[in-house]
Structure formats: structure tokens, C-alpha cells
Lab assay of single mutants.
Amino acid sequence: AEEIWQQSVIGDYLARFKNDRVKALKAMEMTWNNMEKKEKLMWIKKAAED
């Protein structure tokens, strides 16, 4: 689920960090860890469908 979420937001994060992939990935990891369980559930369901 986290991978699907990352694939959907990586472009936004890379743009925000001027294509600094290391910073973008760290920010994504922090965002994922801070997400509410119900927000993650949507992505977990999406992962299950694929």
C-alpha cells in the first residue's frame, strides 16, 4: 500500500524538492508515518484490488 501511495505522490514530492530524490523520499516516509489509519486504509484497499 505504501508503494502505491508513493508512486502516486512521488512527482509532487520531487517537484517540491527540486528533484532531490533523497529529501523527497525522506519527506514521503515521514508523511506516510504521520498519516491517519483511515487515510492509509484507502491505499491498502487500492493495493488489494491490484
Results as ranks from 00 to 15, higher is better:
D50G: 06
Q6Y: 10
E49F: 07
K26S: 08
A1K: 01
M35L: 05
A24E: 00
N33G: 06
R21K: 14
M35C: 01
M30P: 01
W32T: 00
W32Y: 01
E36S: 15
A47V: 08
L41Q: 13
A1E: 05
M42V: 14
Y13A: 02
K40V: 04
A48T: 07
E29R: 10
L41I: 09
R16K: 10
W5T: 00
A47Y: 08
I44P: 02
W43V: 02
T31W: 06
K45V: 11
Q6A: 13
A27K: 04
M30S: 07
M42R: 08
E39C: 10
E39L: 07
W43G: 02
A47G: 04
I10D: 01
A27N: 04
I44N: 06
K38P: 09
F17I: 01
A15V: 13
K26A: 11
W32N: 00
A48L: 12
E29G: 10
V22A: 13
K45F: 07
Q7S: 12
E2H: 11
W43P: 02
S8H: 15
W5V: 00
N33Q: 10
E2T: 05
D20Q: 03
T31G: 06
A48Q: 14
D12N: 08
D20L: 02
M35Q: 01
V9A: 04
V9L: 04
I44G: 06
D12Y: 07
I4V: 08
A47H: 08
S8N: 06
L41F: 08
E36W: 03
R21H: 14
E36C: 09
I4R: 08
D50F: 15
N19C: 14
D12A: 08
Q7N: 06
A27F: 11
K23P: 03
N19T: 03
L14T: 03
E3Y: 09
D50M: 15
Q6P: 01
K38M: 09
K37R: 14
Y13V: 02
Q6H: 09
K23R: 13
M28P: 00
M28V: 02
L14K: 02
K38I: 12
D20T: 00
I10L: 13
M28F: 01
N19H: 10
K46H: 07
K26M: 10
F17W: 11
W43M: 02
A1V: 05
V22N: 07
T31N: 08
K38A: 13
E49P: 05
E2F: 15
A1F: 04
W5E: 00
K18N: 15
Y13K: 00
E29F: 05
R16T: 12
E29Q: 13
E3H: 11
Q7E: 10
Q7F: 12
I44T: 04
Q6F: 08
V22F: 09
I10G: 03
E36I: 04
K18I: 05
F17E: 06
D50H: 13
K37H: 15
E29D: 08
L41M: 07
K40M: 04
S8Q: 09
W43Q: 03
E36R: 04
K46Q: 05
F17M: 04
N34P: 00
N33L: 12
M42T: 11
L25Q: 14
I4S: 09
A15P: 05
Q7I: 09
L25D: 04
A48I: 11
M35S: 01
K23A: 15
K23I: 06
A47W: 12
K46D: 04
K38F: 13
E2P: 15
W32A: 00
K26Y: 09
E29A: 11
K40N: 02
I10Q: 05
K38E: 15
R16N: 08
M30E: 10
E2C: 12
E49G: 12
K46M: 14
Y13P: 01
Y13C: 02
Q7T: 08
K37S: 15
K18T: 08
V22G: 10
L41C: 15
E39G: 02
D12S: 12
I4T: 08
W43H: 03
D12K: 07
F17T: 04
W5C: 01
Q7C: 12
L25H: 05
V9K: 04
D12T: 08
Q6V: 13
E39F: 03
E3I: 13
V22W: 07
A47M: 09
S8M: 09
I4H: 08
K23T: 08
A1R: 02
I4M: 15
R21E: 09
K38V: 12
A27V: 06
E3N: 10
E36G: 13
L25G: 07
A47R: 03
K40R: 06
K45P: 04
S8A: 11
E2A: 10
E39Y: 03
E29M: 12
K23S: 10
D50N: 08
K37L: 15
I44E: 15
N33V: 06
I44H: 06
E49R: 05
K37E: 15
A1D: 04
Q6K: 10
A15M: 13
K46F: 12
N33S: 07
K37T: 15
M30H: 13
E49D: 12
A24R: 01
E2M: 14
F17G: 01
M28C: 02
I44L: 13
E2G: 04
G11T: 11
A24P: 00
A15K: 11
K40T: 02
K37Q: 14
E29C: 06
D20I: 03
K37M: 15
I4D: 03
M35P: 00
R21C: 15
E3F: 14
E39I: 06
A47F: 12
D20R: 02
N19D: 14
E2Y: 11
G11A: 15
R16A: 12
A24C: 04
K26N: 08
R21M: 12
W5S: 01
A48G: 09
R21P: 05
N33W: 09
D50W: 11
A24M: 08
E3V: 13
M42Y: 14
K18F: 13
D20V: 03
K46S: 07
A48C: 05
R16I: 14
K46I: 10
K26T: 06
K37F: 15
Q7R: 14
M30C: 09
M28T: 02
R16L: 14
V9S: 03
A27C: 09
W32C: 01
V22L: 13
D20P: 00
G11H: 15
G11Y: 12
M28A: 03
I10N: 03
N19M: 13
R21T: 07
M30F: 13
R21G: 09
A27H: 11
A47Q: 05
A15Q: 12
W32P: 00
A15D: 10
N33T: 10
M42A: 07
M30N: 11
R16G: 05
K23E: 14
L41D: 15
Q6R: 13
V22R: 06
K45Q: 15
K23D: 06
K18R: 12
Q7G: 05
Q7H: 09
D12M: 08
D20Y: 01
A47I: 06
K37P: 15
E2D: 05
A24T: 03
W32S: 00
L25Y: 13
W5G: 00
K38T: 15
W5Q: 00
